[in-house]
Write a protein that binds this DNA or RNA. Structure first.
Length: 597
DNA sequence: TCGTAAGGCGCC
DNA sequence: AAAGGGCGCCTTACGA
């Protein structure tokens, strides 16, 4: 039985400090200044569906203070909101405050997520422009920053605000009516899964968190004391550093990036005589570390769980998830620095353990599948590691022993090639990638040889690059839809040449594209779809996902079930979706009492 | 005092 | 012809 569907939009007080951005959803909704002053609710089958401001407001079930909203109307309904994570959280807060009933059995759906799935921008304004051809003004919302409901009423803004709120609700509803049939059920489940994770948070070891903050702060103070201009100029200011260089008669490097080869040489040459050189790098990294720990600390709720696993569904143009502001779980330090292992801070609730499982080299495997390289796929199916497969298929390795032990140098070079050259990277860039990804030192001419050799021996992949580019360019002046095996598609809009590049718009962002990059996009998108398939399979099997990072999932299970769970999770994570049969996947699964790499 | 851009850097 | 990509957060600089 299908549910009745309503569009809904809340309006709440906000200012510079009291906002989701600064406080997180929980902190914001529990702040004493936070006030939910309006809600608009519209039944999508109502005749007022074509309502425009000032014409007919009868279409609305309700628009006014949430305290007087007849919430029973919504019992058992589907509720559609733009950025439902917010509206759902507001509703839960009203329940908590006794202003709404707890048992309405609502199904929340998010039109911002839907827009992102369709390759449109997330914001209501831009989504309506692209998907409905309608212009929305956000002026009223901007004007309300720092203005309370009572003040707005005093200014005579009551009707203006109602119109604004109803119009947003209407637009949200229209987006849903026009496009929801293009948003498949399994993707709606992923969207809901993302909101569920955020709502529940992650348990945190507060003792380790506080100890980590103390350690980072101590390092920071030491570094500061070694910087001569401390207190007189910003500590990592390029201008201040250039002035110090001039003062001490040493050259200023063109870049201060710590991985830049020229900068490394500069640090080695002058670092000994001038200890502040090391100190600026120490300060930079210790400061970032401390700030992240501070952010995390601010997001810990009274129950010891932190709201740091909010993700944007389809936040990236490829459909990957992205961060949502505040603490970002997707770029967390691995291992220890300054005696702090950030990942250890995240723990399961008492009596539980984490099951951590990741897809091994998922993108490299998908790329072979998309390119149709059966030779390498067959070797993979035999259980050979992907780097050895590459060495056997394209680098002339014929030994019977595993490559990793038989010829470690060749193995590392194969790894560098697989990780670094799959998407059109050139020789200069490959030098850096080979070093950072596989620890391989190459001269520029050696890198050139490797790039040329890779492209010659991996013709099917190179073919995929050029085919994608060819089709892309053929859509000059149009949109290019790239179908994925999952049934989803990537959409490159408004393709046109500009300044020697080929540009397109994805989720409202314009950038340049070429074969290797398109191939990377399609590969990443497919890997994302495979991963999401597994998220749902895990949910179906009853597992609670605390958070995930692109190809890695962290589940929380009772300790007593850990062994069985690890086996079952490993099984689920190794199972290829039915829409991509015979793509050889692999997973690694561990049991842990804390998050770790 | 704002918003934005850019340099730098963390991860997948 | 040549081009790894996908993100977000921190600081500083700069212009309105």
């Amino acid at each position: 039985m299908s549910r009745r569907t309503y569009a809904l939009d809340f309006e709440t007080y906000y200012d510079r400090e009291v906002s989701i951005t600064t406080l997180g959803t929980y902190g914001y909704l529990h702040h004493p200044h936070c006030h939910v002053y309006m809600v608009a609710v519209m039944e999508l089958e109502s005749p007022g569906y074509e309502w425009e401001p000032g014409v007919d407001k009868e279409a609305f079930s309700y628009c006014g203070e949430p305290e007087n909203m007849p919430w029973e109307t919504l019992r058992g309904a589907r509720v559609v909101a733009h950025n439902a994570s917010f509206d759902e959280a507001v509703f839960e807060r009203l329940v908590e405050q006794g202003k709404a009933p707890a048992d309405l059995n609502l199904e929340w759906c998010c039109t911002a997520d839907m827009a992102a799935y369709l390759g449109a921008p997330r914001s209501l304004k831009e989504a309506c422009q692209l998907l409905l051809g309608k212009y929305i003004s956000k002026e009223t919302r901007d004007e309300m920053r720092g203005i309370t409901w009572a003040e707005a009423v005093d200014r005579g803004w009551e009707q203006k605000l109602k119109d604004y709120c109803m119009f947003d609700t209407l637009m949200c509803g229209q987006l849903w009516k026009e496009y929801s049939h293009k948003w498949p059920e399994h993707e709606r489940r992923i969207s809901a899964h993302t909101r569920r994770m955020a709502r529940e948070g992650i348990h945190v070891d507060r003792a380790i968190l506080e100890e980590s903050r103390r350690k980072a702060a101590a390092v920071l103070i030491d570094a500061r004391d070694s910087i001569p201009w401390a207190g007189r100029a910003p500590l990592t200011s390029h201008k201040a550093i250039a002035a110090q260089c001039a003062l001490e008669g040493i050259p200023m490097p063109s870049s201060l990036a710590k991985d830049n080869p020229n900068t490394i040489k500069w640090m080695e040459t002058y670092g000994g005589e001038h200890p502040w050189i090391q100190a600026i790098y120490t300060h930079r990294s210790a400061n970032t570390l401390l700030e992240k720990l501070n952010t995390l600390s601010e997001r810990v709720r009274p129950d010891g769980d932190a709201e740091v696993n909010r993700l944007l569904y389809c936040g990236a143009g490829t459909g990957r998830f992205s961060g949502f502001g505040g603490f970002n779980m997707q770029n967390m330090y691995r291992g220890e620095r300054y005696g702090v292992d950030m990942r250890r801070i995240f723990i399961p609730h008492p009596g539980n353990v984490f099951i951590i499982s990741d897809l091994a080299q998922i993108e490299a495997r998908v790329a072979l599948y998309l390119a149709g390289d059966e030779k390498q796929l067959n070797l993979l199916r035999d259980g050979t590691s992907i780097y050895e497969v590459h060495a056997r298929a394209t680098m002339g390795y014929t030994g019977t022993a595993p490559l990793k032990s038989a010829d470690p140098d060749l193995y590392r070079l194969a790894k560098a090639r697989v990780l670094g050259l799959g998407y059109g990277c050139g020789a200069a860039k490959f030098m850096l990638l080979a070093k950072t990804m596989a620890g391989v030192d190459l001269t520029l001419s050696q890198a050139k040889v490797q790039v040329a050799d890779f492209r010659r021996k991996n013709a099917m992949l190179v073919n995929l690059w050029s085919n994608l580019e060819k089709h892309f360019k053929r859509h000059n002046g149009q949109d290019f839809h790239v179908p994925l095996y999952s049934g989803r598609e990537l959409i490159y809009r408004d393709i046109h040449p500009f300044a020697g590049e080929w540009r397109a718009t994805v989720q409202g962002r314009v950038s340049a594209y070429y074969g290797g990059k398109l191939c990377e996009n399609v590969t990443q998108a497919t890997a994302r779809d495979i991963f999401c398939c597994m998220l749902l399979a895990l949910e179906d099997a009853g597992y609670i996902c605390r958070f995930h990072v692109h190809d890695e999932v962290v589940l929380e299970v009772p300790e007593a079930e850990a062994e069985f769970a690890a086996k079952e999770v490993q099984q689920i994570m190794s199972t290829t979706p039915e829409w991509m049969p015979s793509c050889p996947l692999a997973a690694e699964t561990i049991i842990s009492t804390h998050y770790c790499k």
